[in-house]
Design a protein around this nucleic acid. Structure first.
Lengths: 187, 187
DNA sequence: ACCTGAACACCGTTCAAGT
DNA sequence: ACCTGAACACCGTTCAAGT
Protein backbone atom coordinates (compact mmCIF):
# COMPACT_ATOMS: atom_id res chain seq x y z
CA UNK A 1 0.00 0.00 0.00
CA UNK A 2 0.73 3.57 -0.45
CA UNK A 3 4.01 4.63 0.97
CA UNK A 4 6.43 1.91 0.24
CA UNK A 5 5.58 -1.62 -0.73
CA UNK A 6 9.25 -2.48 -1.03
CA UNK A 7 9.93 -1.64 2.60
CA UNK A 8 6.83 -3.50 3.73
CA UNK A 9 7.96 -6.58 1.80
CA UNK A 10 11.41 -6.39 3.37
CA UNK A 11 10.02 -6.04 6.88
CA UNK A 12 7.46 -8.83 6.60
CA UNK A 13 9.93 -10.98 4.70
CA UNK A 14 12.51 -10.69 7.42
CA UNK A 15 10.09 -11.90 10.06
CA UNK A 16 8.94 -14.77 7.90
CA UNK A 17 12.51 -15.80 7.08
CA UNK A 18 13.42 -15.79 10.76
CA UNK A 19 10.53 -18.18 11.41
CA UNK A 20 10.60 -20.37 8.33
CA UNK A 21 13.93 -19.89 6.60
CA UNK A 22 14.63 -19.33 2.93
CA UNK A 23 12.84 -22.46 1.78
CA UNK A 24 9.85 -21.66 3.94
CA UNK A 25 9.57 -18.07 2.82
CA UNK A 26 6.21 -18.07 1.03
CA UNK A 27 5.67 -15.51 -1.70
CA UNK A 28 1.88 -15.70 -1.72
CA UNK A 29 1.63 -15.40 2.04
CA UNK A 30 4.17 -12.63 2.11
CA UNK A 31 2.28 -10.73 -0.57
CA UNK A 32 -0.98 -11.16 1.31
CA UNK A 33 0.59 -9.69 4.45
CA UNK A 34 1.64 -6.65 2.45
CA UNK A 35 -1.72 -6.38 0.67
CA UNK A 36 -0.63 -7.20 -2.89
CA UNK A 37 -0.45 -10.29 -5.10
CA UNK A 38 2.53 -12.60 -5.22
CA UNK A 39 3.36 -11.59 -8.77
CA UNK A 40 3.63 -7.98 -7.68
CA UNK A 41 6.59 -8.77 -5.44
CA UNK A 42 8.58 -9.40 -8.58
CA UNK A 43 8.20 -5.81 -9.54
CA UNK A 44 10.28 -4.87 -6.50
CA UNK A 45 12.65 -7.84 -6.46
CA UNK A 46 13.67 -9.76 -9.57
CA UNK A 47 13.50 -13.12 -7.82
CA UNK A 48 13.08 -14.81 -4.48
CA UNK A 49 16.86 -15.10 -4.35
CA UNK A 50 17.27 -11.35 -4.73
CA UNK A 51 14.54 -10.67 -2.21
CA UNK A 52 16.24 -12.94 0.32
CA UNK A 53 19.59 -11.30 -0.39
CA UNK A 54 18.03 -7.87 0.21
CA UNK A 55 16.44 -9.11 3.44
CA UNK A 56 19.74 -10.55 4.64
CA UNK A 57 21.63 -7.42 3.64
CA UNK A 58 19.20 -5.22 5.55
CA UNK A 59 19.47 -7.63 8.45
CA UNK A 60 23.23 -7.26 8.87
CA UNK A 61 22.99 -3.52 8.32
CA UNK A 62 20.47 -3.24 11.14
CA UNK A 63 22.59 -5.50 13.32
CA UNK A 64 25.69 -3.46 12.60
CA UNK A 65 23.92 -0.20 13.47
CA UNK A 66 22.62 -1.68 16.71
CA UNK A 67 26.04 -3.01 17.69
CA UNK A 68 27.66 0.34 17.00
CA UNK A 69 25.09 2.03 19.21
CA UNK A 70 25.88 -0.41 21.99
CA UNK A 71 29.60 0.26 21.62
CA UNK A 72 29.04 4.02 21.62
CA UNK A 73 26.78 3.90 24.67
CA UNK A 74 29.20 1.72 26.61
CA UNK A 75 32.66 3.09 26.93
CA UNK A 76 33.68 0.03 28.87
CA UNK A 77 34.14 -2.72 26.27
CA UNK A 78 33.28 -5.36 28.87
CA UNK A 79 29.93 -3.68 29.43
CA UNK A 80 29.36 -3.65 25.68
CA UNK A 81 30.21 -7.35 25.43
CA UNK A 82 27.77 -8.09 28.22
CA UNK A 83 25.01 -6.61 26.08
CA UNK A 84 25.90 -8.67 23.00
CA UNK A 85 23.44 -11.55 23.58
CA UNK A 86 20.58 -9.08 23.84
CA UNK A 87 19.71 -9.09 20.09
CA UNK A 88 19.46 -12.86 20.11
CA UNK A 89 17.27 -12.66 23.16
CA UNK A 90 14.99 -10.12 21.51
CA UNK A 91 14.44 -12.46 18.55
CA UNK A 92 13.20 -15.12 20.93
CA UNK A 93 10.95 -12.61 22.61
CA UNK A 94 9.63 -11.50 19.24
CA UNK A 95 7.67 -14.60 18.28
CA UNK A 96 10.34 -17.14 19.22
CA UNK A 97 12.28 -16.23 16.09
CA UNK A 98 15.74 -17.39 15.15
CA UNK A 99 18.67 -15.26 14.14
CA UNK A 100 18.39 -15.01 10.36
CA UNK A 101 22.08 -15.83 10.03
CA UNK A 102 21.58 -19.12 11.86
CA UNK A 103 18.59 -20.19 9.80
CA UNK A 104 20.27 -19.31 6.53
CA UNK A 105 23.45 -20.91 7.80
CA UNK A 106 21.60 -24.19 8.22
CA UNK A 107 20.18 -23.85 4.71
CA UNK A 108 23.54 -22.86 3.28
CA UNK A 109 23.74 -25.74 0.80
CA UNK A 110 20.52 -24.66 -0.88
CA UNK A 111 21.12 -20.92 -0.80
CA UNK A 112 21.60 -18.81 -3.95
CA UNK A 113 25.00 -17.20 -4.16
CA UNK A 114 23.70 -13.65 -3.50
CA UNK A 115 22.18 -14.80 -0.23
CA UNK A 116 25.29 -16.69 0.83
CA UNK A 117 27.35 -13.55 0.51
CA UNK A 118 25.06 -11.61 2.83
CA UNK A 119 25.13 -14.44 5.36
CA UNK A 120 28.92 -14.28 5.34
CA UNK A 121 28.84 -10.53 5.85
CA UNK A 122 26.45 -10.94 8.77
CA UNK A 123 28.92 -13.29 10.44
CA UNK A 124 31.82 -10.96 9.66
CA UNK A 125 29.99 -8.00 11.22
CA UNK A 126 29.34 -9.91 14.43
CA UNK A 127 32.80 -11.42 14.68
CA UNK A 128 34.50 -8.14 13.84
CA UNK A 129 32.57 -6.22 16.47
CA UNK A 130 33.24 -8.85 19.11
CA UNK A 131 36.94 -9.01 18.24
CA UNK A 132 37.27 -5.23 18.56
CA UNK A 133 35.66 -5.24 22.02
CA UNK A 134 37.76 -8.18 23.17
CA UNK A 135 40.96 -6.40 22.17
CA UNK A 136 39.81 -3.13 23.74
CA UNK A 137 39.01 -4.95 26.96
CA UNK A 138 42.45 -6.53 26.94
CA UNK A 139 40.85 -9.98 27.05
CA UNK A 140 42.79 -11.30 24.08
CA UNK A 141 45.77 -10.29 22.02
CA UNK A 142 45.06 -9.10 18.49
CA UNK A 143 46.23 -12.38 17.04
CA UNK A 144 43.70 -14.55 18.85
CA UNK A 145 40.84 -12.08 18.96
CA UNK A 146 39.06 -13.30 15.85
CA UNK A 147 39.11 -16.92 16.99
CA UNK A 148 37.73 -15.94 20.37
CA UNK A 149 35.10 -13.72 18.77
CA UNK A 150 33.99 -16.53 16.49
CA UNK A 151 33.59 -18.86 19.44
CA UNK A 152 31.39 -16.37 21.27
CA UNK A 153 29.26 -15.76 18.18
CA UNK A 154 28.82 -19.50 17.59
CA UNK A 155 28.03 -20.28 21.21
CA UNK A 156 25.40 -17.55 21.54
CA UNK A 157 23.79 -18.58 18.25
CA UNK A 158 23.78 -22.21 19.39
CA UNK A 159 22.17 -21.25 22.70
CA UNK A 160 19.44 -19.39 20.84
CA UNK A 161 18.82 -22.33 18.52
CA UNK A 162 18.40 -24.75 21.41
CA UNK A 163 16.29 -22.40 23.56
CA UNK A 164 14.01 -21.73 20.61
CA UNK A 165 13.26 -25.41 20.05
CA UNK A 166 12.00 -25.49 23.64
CA UNK A 167 10.28 -22.11 23.37
CA UNK A 168 11.97 -21.25 26.65
CA UNK A 169 13.88 -17.98 26.98
CA UNK A 170 15.05 -18.87 30.48
CA UNK A 171 17.13 -21.64 28.94
CA UNK A 172 18.85 -19.05 26.77
CA UNK A 173 19.61 -16.90 29.80
CA UNK A 174 21.01 -19.84 31.72
CA UNK A 175 23.27 -20.85 28.86
CA UNK A 176 24.60 -17.31 28.49
CA UNK A 177 25.29 -17.32 32.23
CA UNK A 178 27.26 -20.53 31.82
CA UNK A 179 29.31 -19.04 29.01
CA UNK A 180 30.06 -16.01 31.14
CA UNK A 181 30.92 -18.01 34.24
CA UNK A 182 33.24 -20.23 32.22
CA UNK A 183 34.99 -17.10 31.03
CA UNK A 184 34.18 -17.61 27.37
CA UNK A 185 32.81 -14.08 27.42
CA UNK A 186 32.74 -11.41 30.10
CA UNK A 187 29.63 -11.16 32.27
CA UNK B 1 17.06 -53.83 -4.52
CA UNK B 2 18.32 -56.31 -2.35
CA UNK B 3 17.48 -56.76 1.21
CA UNK B 4 15.78 -53.75 2.60
CA UNK B 5 14.36 -50.73 0.88
CA UNK B 6 13.14 -49.36 4.18
CA UNK B 7 16.67 -49.21 5.56
CA UNK B 8 17.95 -47.66 2.34
CA UNK B 9 15.25 -44.98 2.53
CA UNK B 10 16.17 -44.23 6.14
CA UNK B 11 19.88 -44.01 5.36
CA UNK B 12 19.51 -41.81 2.29
CA UNK B 13 16.81 -39.76 3.99
CA UNK B 14 19.06 -39.05 6.92
CA UNK B 15 21.82 -37.72 4.69
CA UNK B 16 19.38 -35.61 2.70
CA UNK B 17 17.79 -34.20 5.85
CA UNK B 18 21.20 -33.30 7.25
CA UNK B 19 21.90 -31.34 4.06
CA UNK B 20 18.49 -29.88 3.25
CA UNK B 21 16.31 -30.15 6.34
CA UNK B 22 12.74 -31.35 6.61
CA UNK B 23 11.35 -28.87 4.11
CA UNK B 24 14.11 -29.68 1.65
CA UNK B 25 13.65 -33.43 1.94
CA UNK B 26 12.22 -34.37 -1.45
CA UNK B 27 10.30 -37.61 -1.81
CA UNK B 28 10.93 -37.96 -5.53
CA UNK B 29 14.66 -37.35 -5.22
CA UNK B 30 14.95 -39.60 -2.23
CA UNK B 31 13.17 -42.38 -4.10
CA UNK B 32 15.51 -41.96 -7.05
CA UNK B 33 18.53 -42.35 -4.79
CA UNK B 34 17.15 -45.59 -3.46
CA UNK B 35 16.23 -46.79 -6.91
CA UNK B 36 12.45 -46.76 -6.55
CA UNK B 37 9.61 -44.34 -7.31
CA UNK B 38 8.21 -41.79 -4.90
CA UNK B 39 4.95 -43.67 -4.58
CA UNK B 40 6.83 -46.72 -3.34
CA UNK B 41 8.12 -44.86 -0.29
CA UNK B 42 4.54 -44.81 0.97
CA UNK B 43 4.59 -48.55 1.16
CA UNK B 44 7.22 -48.23 3.90
CA UNK B 45 6.19 -44.95 5.56
CA UNK B 46 2.63 -43.61 5.72
CA UNK B 47 3.67 -39.98 5.17
CA UNK B 48 6.62 -37.63 4.93
CA UNK B 49 6.04 -36.66 8.55
CA UNK B 50 6.30 -40.30 9.65
CA UNK B 51 9.37 -40.83 7.50
CA UNK B 52 11.08 -37.81 9.05
CA UNK B 53 10.13 -38.96 12.53
CA UNK B 54 11.62 -42.39 11.80
CA UNK B 55 14.79 -40.76 10.46
CA UNK B 56 15.11 -38.56 13.54
CA UNK B 57 14.40 -41.47 15.87
CA UNK B 58 17.08 -43.59 14.22
CA UNK B 59 19.39 -40.60 14.41
CA UNK B 60 19.20 -40.24 18.17
CA UNK B 61 19.39 -44.00 18.62
CA UNK B 62 22.62 -44.11 16.62
CA UNK B 63 23.95 -41.11 18.52
CA UNK B 64 23.08 -42.70 21.84
CA UNK B 65 24.80 -45.96 20.89
CA UNK B 66 27.90 -44.09 19.78
CA UNK B 67 28.02 -42.02 22.97
CA UNK B 68 27.66 -45.13 25.12
CA UNK B 69 30.54 -46.72 23.26
CA UNK B 70 32.66 -43.67 23.93
CA UNK B 71 31.78 -43.75 27.62
CA UNK B 72 32.53 -47.46 27.83
CA UNK B 73 35.85 -47.11 26.03
CA UNK B 74 36.93 -44.20 28.23
CA UNK B 75 36.86 -44.89 31.90
CA UNK B 76 38.01 -41.36 32.55
CA UNK B 77 34.93 -39.15 32.08
CA UNK B 78 37.13 -36.22 31.07
CA UNK B 79 38.57 -38.31 28.25
CA UNK B 80 35.03 -39.19 27.17
CA UNK B 81 34.00 -35.53 27.22
CA UNK B 82 37.00 -34.68 25.10
CA UNK B 83 35.66 -37.03 22.41
CA UNK B 84 32.17 -35.52 22.44
CA UNK B 85 32.66 -33.03 19.55
CA UNK B 86 33.84 -35.86 17.32
CA UNK B 87 30.37 -36.76 15.95
CA UNK B 88 29.77 -33.17 14.96
CA UNK B 89 33.14 -33.11 13.28
CA UNK B 90 32.37 -36.29 11.37
CA UNK B 91 29.19 -34.73 9.96
CA UNK B 92 31.24 -31.89 8.55
CA UNK B 93 33.73 -34.36 7.09
CA UNK B 94 30.86 -36.34 5.58
CA UNK B 95 29.71 -33.88 2.93
CA UNK B 96 29.72 -30.79 5.14
CA UNK B 97 26.51 -31.97 6.77
CA UNK B 98 24.79 -30.46 9.75
CA UNK B 99 23.67 -32.21 12.90
CA UNK B 100 20.11 -33.28 12.15
CA UNK B 101 18.99 -31.93 15.52
CA UNK B 102 20.27 -28.47 14.63
CA UNK B 103 18.59 -28.39 11.23
CA UNK B 104 15.28 -29.63 12.58
CA UNK B 105 15.69 -27.27 15.53
CA UNK B 106 15.82 -24.35 13.12
CA UNK B 107 12.72 -25.63 11.33
CA UNK B 108 10.94 -26.33 14.59
CA UNK B 109 7.99 -24.03 13.85
CA UNK B 110 7.10 -25.96 10.71
CA UNK B 111 7.71 -29.47 12.03
CA UNK B 112 4.97 -32.10 12.46
CA UNK B 113 4.46 -33.14 16.05
CA UNK B 114 5.96 -36.63 15.61
CA UNK B 115 9.19 -35.08 14.37
CA UNK B 116 9.34 -32.51 17.16
CA UNK B 117 9.24 -35.25 19.75
CA UNK B 118 12.24 -37.01 18.24
CA UNK B 119 14.16 -33.73 18.08
CA UNK B 120 13.53 -33.24 21.79
CA UNK B 121 14.71 -36.76 22.53
CA UNK B 122 17.88 -36.16 20.54
CA UNK B 123 18.65 -33.12 22.68
CA UNK B 124 17.81 -35.04 25.85
CA UNK B 125 20.16 -37.88 24.90
CA UNK B 126 23.04 -35.48 24.32
CA UNK B 127 22.42 -33.38 27.40
CA UNK B 128 21.87 -36.43 29.63
CA UNK B 129 25.10 -38.07 28.49
CA UNK B 130 27.08 -34.87 28.98
CA UNK B 131 25.56 -34.26 32.41
CA UNK B 132 26.49 -37.78 33.54
CA UNK B 133 30.11 -37.35 32.44
CA UNK B 134 30.34 -33.92 34.07
CA UNK B 135 29.14 -35.27 37.39
CA UNK B 136 31.42 -38.32 37.15
CA UNK B 137 34.35 -36.05 36.46
CA UNK B 138 33.46 -33.92 39.44
CA UNK B 139 33.26 -30.87 37.23
CA UNK B 140 29.80 -29.84 38.42
CA UNK B 141 27.45 -30.74 41.22
CA UNK B 142 24.37 -32.72 40.28
CA UNK B 143 22.19 -29.65 40.55
CA UNK B 144 24.00 -27.63 37.92
CA UNK B 145 25.05 -30.48 35.67
CA UNK B 146 22.13 -30.24 33.27
CA UNK B 147 22.59 -26.51 32.73
CA UNK B 148 26.29 -27.01 32.08
CA UNK B 149 25.57 -29.93 29.75
CA UNK B 150 23.06 -27.87 27.81
CA UNK B 151 25.60 -25.11 27.33
CA UNK B 152 28.18 -27.49 25.97
CA UNK B 153 25.68 -29.08 23.60
CA UNK B 154 24.52 -25.68 22.33
CA UNK B 155 28.04 -24.33 21.92
CA UNK B 156 29.29 -27.34 19.97
CA UNK B 157 26.19 -27.29 17.75
CA UNK B 158 26.70 -23.57 17.16
CA UNK B 159 30.34 -24.09 16.25
CA UNK B 160 29.34 -26.74 13.73
CA UNK B 161 26.69 -24.47 12.22
CA UNK B 162 29.15 -21.64 11.72
CA UNK B 163 32.01 -23.83 10.45
CA UNK B 164 29.65 -25.47 7.96
CA UNK B 165 28.63 -22.17 6.43
CA UNK B 166 32.31 -21.59 5.69
CA UNK B 167 32.91 -25.20 4.65
CA UNK B 168 35.96 -25.07 6.91
CA UNK B 169 36.51 -27.82 9.46
CA UNK B 170 39.54 -26.05 10.89
CA UNK B 171 37.20 -23.32 12.14
CA UNK B 172 35.25 -25.97 14.03
CA UNK B 173 38.43 -27.29 15.62
CA UNK B 174 39.54 -23.81 16.65
CA UNK B 175 36.19 -23.04 18.26
CA UNK B 176 36.22 -26.30 20.19
CA UNK B 177 39.73 -25.42 21.37
CA UNK B 178 38.43 -22.06 22.58
CA UNK B 179 35.60 -23.71 24.49
CA UNK B 180 38.06 -26.06 26.13
CA UNK B 181 40.57 -23.36 26.97
CA UNK B 182 37.84 -21.24 28.50
CA UNK B 183 36.90 -24.20 30.67
CA UNK B 184 33.40 -24.58 29.27
CA UNK B 185 34.30 -28.21 28.66
CA UNK B 186 37.39 -30.24 29.51
CA UNK B 187 40.09 -30.56 26.84
C1' DA C 1 4.82 -58.16 -0.22
C1' DC C 2 6.54 -54.68 -3.09
C1' DC C 3 6.42 -51.55 -6.78
C1' DT C 4 4.64 -48.17 -10.42
C1' DG C 5 2.23 -44.83 -13.91
C1' DA C 6 -0.92 -41.66 -13.80
C1' DA C 7 -3.50 -38.53 -11.70
C1' DC C 8 -4.99 -35.26 -8.02
C1' DA C 9 -5.07 -30.89 -5.48
C1' DC C 10 -2.05 -27.75 -4.19
C1' DC C 11 1.65 -24.12 -4.22
C1' DG C 12 5.73 -21.18 -5.44
C1' DT C 13 7.45 -18.83 -9.57
C1' DT C 14 7.28 -16.55 -13.82
C1' DC C 15 5.64 -13.79 -17.74
C1' DA C 16 2.71 -11.39 -20.92
C1' DA C 17 -0.36 -8.10 -20.56
C1' DG C 18 -3.17 -4.73 -18.25
C1' DT C 19 -3.63 0.16 -15.86
C1' DA D 1 5.83 2.67 -12.34
C1' DC D 2 2.89 -0.77 -10.45
C1' DC D 3 -0.02 -4.62 -10.54
C1' DT D 4 -2.31 -9.10 -11.93
C1' DG D 5 -4.41 -13.47 -14.28
C1' DA D 6 -3.01 -17.42 -15.71
C1' DA D 7 0.27 -20.63 -17.05
C1' DC D 8 4.07 -23.41 -15.58
C1' DA D 9 6.90 -26.65 -12.84
C1' DC D 10 7.01 -29.16 -8.95
C1' DC D 11 5.28 -30.85 -4.50
C1' DG D 12 3.14 -34.63 -1.28
C1' DT D 13 -0.08 -37.93 -1.86
C1' DT D 14 -3.43 -41.51 -3.61
C1' DC D 15 -4.90 -45.57 -6.06
C1' DA D 16 -5.79 -49.02 -9.43
C1' DA D 17 -2.99 -52.03 -11.46
C1' DG D 18 1.19 -54.79 -12.22
C1' DT D 19 4.89 -58.32 -10.52
Amino acid sequence: MSGNAREAILAAGRLSAQSHGYGGLNMRELAAEVGIKAASIYHHFPSKADLAAAIAERYWQDTKAWLEEVAAANGDPKAALKKYPETFRMSLENGNRLCLGSFLGAEYDDLPEQVRQQVQTFADVNIGWLADRLVDAGLTDEKGSEAQARSIFAAVAGAQLLARSRSDISLFDTMIDSFQEAGLMPG
